[in-house]
Write a protein that binds this DNA or RNA. Structure first.
Lengths: 350, 350
DNA sequence: CCGCGGTGGTAATTCGTATAACTCTGCTCC
DNA sequence: GGAGCAGAGTTATACGAATTACCACCGCGG
């Protein structure tokens, strides 16, 4: 009803009739099919008619005919919900679009029934592949149906090892963070981790391992009293930072295994009247854009390369073929701001 | 290759062959079509064969035949990127799913070409409707193509008035926030707004109007010196709060037009050695989940009902029909935490 | 012995597009 | 002057599911 010609149901037959040619001609001309020859006059008429009628190809008919759809499924336990992980979709969507593909997204919120049902729906839409994304890095069980189509696990690892996975390089991140603090001259470096290291949480395990490696490499003996476990939230950072600084031998620097924890530590230090980085240095992890740059002083932290990871997931899908279950690790670059300085007085180690 | 029967290309004909019946029978049985009668034995065989072969309906064939697809397009200038607006997608997706529909999402990042192209793609997929969502509440120009399909504008208003819009009730929010402060006994209430009120930013205009109305209703004369304009960021909150408190007659309470601004104010007050809410009370706006609950003390703020707004957008789409360009406003409930208390000393007004 | 109604199912068509195979008209060339 | 061929299109079919119209069979009444 909008413009005269833009009825939603305009088909190639309508265009053909308007241009006075056959439907096949319309198809061939509009798709600029290779190896066919039509007079300039005919091409002109077809294009004119198509434009006039507001013709738009019916994607379903095309898919039915060609067998493969221009869509990729993106299932996550969060997708939209998580504040910072939006980047991961942004990257995926951008890359998909470059390949002319649309993203069919569902966030299950952890609901396994919804997950199964939406995967079924996606498969009936003949998606070219499925990205199975997780909010945080862990080891997870991938639904069997995904084996029917190219799939990749994003920001987590597939326990069964059937699917290619993409994950951040946690250990190196932990190492880099700690090394940065060591290089600034710190010797008593605490770590407030996110949750227990029961092996199901590669972020916690890896970051801590990197922390230990850096310490060891510097010839330092890790003080168990400086290693604490929060829950990845502000309160965990707050409580643990408070306990740490009130202890007998407080650290001169704290590595917080995520930015939220670091924020809690900021609040604790502020409450104790300690200044950052003068009295104590801090390094975070995640480079959460709503947080890290806006703390005072700005938080030095490690960036989770979500944009690239999202892009890469689609890339792998498109490459298809190989389909081994190997994991591709992404390095987390250090982004320096102003929460790290040299310690006040060096607690000499000999 | 996974399980024997789960080839991706299993069609009704395959099932029919396996069950020893016709394709029509398979269709009728599987869809449990009304008014048809098949023997129990036949039904059983059909279901068994379908299950055995891992049959899954081809959505494209169905759409082609039936004309309407089980998908809704969701286009945004952000979609994933914005930290808190994820809720809006979550709500939309949940409601869509209840209706058996999938969401086809694209975040354009403001790129108009991408926007146009993805709308075209969505329309070729015969989406049942399109939600056109914006990151922040404003007045925007909606692409003409949207007129071809049921569409609704989410978290913004359509300038042309052709499409139904859904937006938060900013004025009432500003009023509620201010009233809350008045009720606590405050008389000198400042406001740090987000950006200029040039009419293109309903959030800024509305929240300020509500602030003025509440003041007027309380018989107070707004002090222009207490009204400041930030940029909606932390730094705007920081700088303006600092200026406000260092002024000749500092306020006893500040209404910050968003949570990020409020956070900046927290930092400024902390720097000045002022405590919240003892020395000054604060109210924010947005109830940003990564921020408001984690500030110390927790920030009293107004919630943007994104989940409901997202749901409602889909609801309107499904209702279709009417299609007037009216705007539906959503109330922003006050969520009380601990940043508001009675003022220290009342600056009596007579 | 024919017709009739009910039961249980099937054949054929439709949706919109892509494409392989085919037709028809001129023209050239020997 | 007919073979051959290039040029310009067309016809027909397939993709997978839904649906309408139809058909075959059986038992029974008249």
């Amino acid at each position: 009803m909008t413009r005269p010609g833009s009825r939603s149901g305009t088909t190639m037959n309508d265009v053909a009739a308007a241009a006075g040619v056959s439907q096949a001609t319309v198809s061939l001309v509009l798709n600029d099919a290779a190896g066919t020859r039509f007079s300039e006059e005919t091409r002109r008429r077809v294009h004119a008619a198509a434009h006039e009628l507001g013709y738009r190809t019916n994607a379903h008919a095309k898919v039915l005919r060609d067998g493969v759809a221009g869509m990729i499924g993106f299932v996550g336990d969060f997708v939209a919900t998580a504040p910072f992980a939006g980047k991961i979709i942004e990257g995926a969507q951008a890359r998909a679009w470059e390949a002319g593909l649309l993203l069919l997204t569902v966030n299950t919120g952890g609901d396994k029934d919804l997950e199964a049902a939406s995967l079924e729906a996606m498969l009936s839409y003949k998606v070219a592949g499925v990205v199975y994304a997780a909010m945080y890095h862990r080891v997870l069980d991938v639904p069997d149906v995904l084996a029917e189509v190219p799939s990749v696990v994003l920001n987590s690892r597939d326990r069964s090892g059937r699917f290619p996975s993409i994950a951040p390089q946690e250990e190196l991140g932990g190492y880099t963070a700690t090394k940065h603090l060591l290089d600034a001259g710190h010797r008593r470096i605490a770590m407030i981790n996110i949750g227990a290291e029961d092996g199901e949480l590669p972020a916690a395990v890896g970051r801590h391992a990197g922390y230990l490696r850096a310490l060891k490499e510097a010839g330092l003996n890790p003080d168990p009293g400086l290693h604490r476990i929060g829950e990845g939230h502000e309160s965990g950072g707050f409580d643990n930072a408070l306990a740490l600084m009130r202890g007998p031998q407080p650290p001169t620097a704290i590595f917080c295994a995520n930015d939220r924890t670091a924020w809690g530590a900021y609040q604790a230090l502020s409450q104790l009247g300690l200044s950052i980085p003068h009295d104590v240095s801090l390094v975070g992890f995640d480079n959460q854009e709503t947080l890290a740059p806006h703390l005072r002083p700005g938080l030095t932290t490690l960036e989770l390369p979500f944009l690239e990871m999202g892009r890469r997931a689609i890339e792998l899908l498109l490459a298809g073929a190989e389909r081994d279950g190997s994991t591709e690790y992404f390095e987390c670059p250090l982004v320096e701001r102003h929460s790290v300085a040299a310690p006040l007085k060096t607690t000499s180690s000999h």
